[in-house]
Simulated scan of single mutants.
Amino acid sequence: MKNLGNMLKQAQQMQSRMQEMQAKLESTEVEGASGGGMVKVRLTGKGDLRRVSIDPSLMNADEREVLEDLLVAAHADAKQKVEATMAEEMQKATAGLSLPPGMKLPF
């Protein structure tokens, strides 16, 4: 029974750390870029788009497809950074918690 009590205590601590992590992710912003920095996007830790910055030289009709591709690439770059940040924060939140083999978080 003592082991169960320890597990419950660890679960409560982890829940608290997860809530802190979610709050931190909401206020975190990451920037993704493409085209050598000609296109930049900012996403929150939750993946919400906050800002787009486009170099004026890309603002002509002949560069439309290039601009579209650069926007997609910048978003993918920012999304990868958000996922890396989330993984790092998740590892911090679950540090010291021993989970049974095969069990992964979040559930």
Rank of each mutant, 00 (worst) to 15 (best):
A11Y: 09
S16R: 14
L8N: 13
L70P: 00
K9T: 12
M14N: 01
D77S: 08
L25S: 07
K2N: 15
F107V: 14
E31Q: 11
M86D: 11
G32D: 03
K24F: 11
P56W: 02
Q15D: 11
A95T: 08
S98A: 15
A87E: 08
V66H: 05
T28L: 15
L97P: 01
V30W: 03
V39W: 01
L99V: 03
L8P: 04
R42E: 13
K92A: 10
M1E: 15
A61T: 09
M7F: 09
Q22M: 10
K79W: 11
L70H: 00
D55M: 05
D55K: 00
A11S: 11
M1K: 13
M18Y: 12
L67E: 01
V52H: 06
E20A: 13
M18T: 11
M90W: 01
L43N: 01
L67P: 06
R42T: 13
H75G: 07
S98I: 15
K46R: 12
F107S: 13
A76H: 12
Q13V: 08
A84C: 01
L8Q: 14
E63W: 01
A73I: 08
L71E: 04
L49E: 03
G102C: 06
M1N: 12
S57Y: 02
A76V: 11
N6K: 15
H75Q: 10
E20H: 06
S98G: 14
M1W: 07
L49C: 04
P56H: 09
Q10K: 12
T94R: 09
E26T: 12
M103S: 07
A11E: 07
M7Q: 15
A93Y: 02
R42D: 05
E88A: 13
A87W: 08
D62V: 04
